[in-house]
Nucleic acid binder design. Structure first.
Lengths: 109, 109
DNA sequence: ATTTAATATTGCAATATTACGATAAAGATT
DNA sequence: AATCTTTATCGTAATATTGCAATATTAAAT
């Protein structure tokens, strides 16, 4: 008990859940916001932007990377983190599709 | 330690995080999918659609409701659960805005 | 008034997440 | 080579989530 029963759900359901879960922490939203704000990929700097210790930020970056929301490449002794356009595009599609379905529904409430 | 440091982030960041976190479980995605599929609000039935015990489903419904993603009204001895259009619309806006920003970025990677 | 049906709550065990200090790793600088 | 800078990993404590059996609640049906 306690572990999510991933195997009982469809790939698509799991895919959306993994992406949403990765976004489901304000520090990770803040990282995404920052990557968007600076209008470029970031080499270094991210730790100083967040009110969290360096290992904690590193961990959040790892989770965003694992989910495919950002990419990170070694660039000298820093790492260049970038938004992964494809994944965010996919997310938008998910929600656009959901909203289209909602609009077609019988408005019972 | 261990608790999310909500107070250090903006309201918007926390808002998106809360919504994303609520979607961040395949069972809850499956509930949303089902509410969309049946093209109506659901009175009863949801427990039978999921591979989880009734108390577990009840808990997931509660979390979706707390996040504002669905509404639930008592309807006789059943409860009528509905998609909350406003919240999904807001989510779509979040992701549309993010994607707009990404498209405007210098493509450095 | 009892029974039935649907949903919620409680209590608990298993697991996951969050956070950070200490330390490691690896390239850049001197 | 020694040092500095940047990021990752390890270890661990605190907290949260997931899941379910047992039980409670509430309204309909008999």
């Amino acid at each position: 008990m306690g572990a999510t029963k991933t195997e009982h759900f469809t790939d698509k359901q799991n895919e959306l859940a993994v992406l949403a879960k990765a976004i489901g922490h304000p520090a990770r939203v803040a990282i995404i916001d920052y990557l968007l704000k600076v209008d470029a990929c970031i080499c270094g700097d991210i730790v100083n932007e967040l009110p969290l210790a360096q290992p904690t930020v590193s961990q959040h970056l790892k989770e965003l990377k694992n989910a495919g929301l950002i990419t990170g490449e070694i660039e000298g002794n820093a790492i260049c983190y970038c938004i992964n356009q494809k994944t965010f595009s996919k997310l938008q599609q998910f929600f656009t599709r959901i909203n289209t379905k909602i609009e077609k529904k019988n408005n019972c409430c």
